[in-house]
Structures are given as structure tokens and as C-alpha cells.
Amino acid sequence: MTTPASESQFVTFCLGDEIFAVPVEVVREILDHEDAFKIPHGPDYLLGLRDVRGQGVPVIDLRLRLGMTKTEKTPHTRILVLDVPMNSRMLTLGLVADRVFEVVPFRREEIEGAPDIGVRWQSDYISGVVRRNGGFVVIVDLARLFSSSESALTGVGAQSLEFA
């Protein structure tokens, strides 16, 4: 019998043909895709700001952040609004996903370490890999992905941008 402490819940989503997951506890809500308010001179993966319940939330094209091709909007495109713990503060951001699937439990012993070769993204942004349905689910380490020195998000997310 599996005890609750030996498994964690994850929200799974896809970018192209690849399946990713983030811990369910960081997901605030999942929204339909809407175009964001553009921010001048932002990095290419920063699509802009979106009003989420009165808060200006930076919206990220995760495909671009991971070195993939730009997201093409479809009826299935969603934005995962996340609250990511970053050092002593909380970074709120929206991640664009081609499709959001479900919440699934992964047992700790199922989670393998990140591969070092043969992948399109830098492995230091991967907290683990789970084998599922003949393929892999990549668990994204959001704090690492958005804490690099080149990330303009750490400044944008630190501000509380309120809409009138």
C-alpha cells in the first residue's frame, strides 16, 4: 500500500509531442488562452502581462524558454497560473501550454534523475523524469528555470502590478 508521503500530485501538460509536469501545489488556476499586454524590451519568451483577478501576471511561452518553437494558439491552448516559491518571495506567472491533461500522482520511487544528454532543453531545469504510457513525463523545476541571472522575470514577478 502506498502512503500519502511516498507520492506527490502533478499537473501534466504538453508542449508539442512532449509531456511535462509541475507540482499541483504551485498551480493556482488554469485559464483559456488570451493574448497578453506586450511589455517592451522583454525577452522573447515573455509574451506580456495578463490580468488575473486584478493582478498583472507575466505570461511565458514555455516552449521558447526551453528552446523549442513558438507556441501556435489552438482551441486547446491554456495558461497555467503558477505561484512559484523563489528564495524569500513568491513569483506568480502564467505558463502557456499546448494542452493541459490531468492531475496525476507519481510515487517518489518512479521519479528518475534528469538525463544529461540527448535532450533539447538544459537538464538543470528538470527535477526528474517519470516513465508513463510508453513515454516520459518531464518534471520541470520552475524555481531553477526562472532564477537564472539572464531571466528578466525575476524583476517583473517581484513587483505587484495591479490593474485599475
Rank of each mutant, 00 (worst) to 15 (best):
I117A: 11
E110K: 08
V104L: 13
A114V: 03
G94I: 02
L95N: 00
R89C: 06
P115C: 13
G113F: 09
V104S: 07
T92F: 02
S123A: 10
V103K: 01
D98C: 05
V119R: 10
L95G: 00
E110I: 04
N87A: 13
D98P: 03
L91E: 02
Y125H: 11
S88G: 10
F106R: 06
Y125T: 08
A97H: 01
G113N: 11
P105G: 09
R99F: 08
L93D: 03
R108I: 10
V100I: 09
Q122P: 00
N87M: 13
R120F: 08
P105V: 05
Y125R: 08
W121S: 03
R99A: 09
P115G: 12
S123M: 05
P105A: 15
E112Q: 15
R89K: 14
E109W: 11
R120Q: 08
R120Y: 07
W121L: 12
G94L: 03
E109A: 12
L95E: 01
V104P: 02
P105R: 15
F106K: 05
G94Y: 01
E110G: 03
E112C: 07
V119G: 10
R120N: 08
L91D: 04
I111M: 12
E112A: 14
P115Y: 14
L93N: 06
D124F: 08
D124P: 00
N87L: 13
E102R: 15
V96C: 07
D116Q: 12
W121E: 04
A97S: 09
R107S: 11
R99Q: 15
Q122R: 15
V100H: 06
W121I: 08
V103E: 03
G113W: 05
I111Y: 13
D98R: 04
V119D: 00
A114P: 02
Y125V: 09
V104E: 07
R120P: 07
V104K: 14
R99E: 14
V103I: 15
D98G: 08
A114N: 03
V119Y: 07
F101W: 10
S123D: 07
R89N: 10
F101K: 09
A114C: 06
E109P: 00
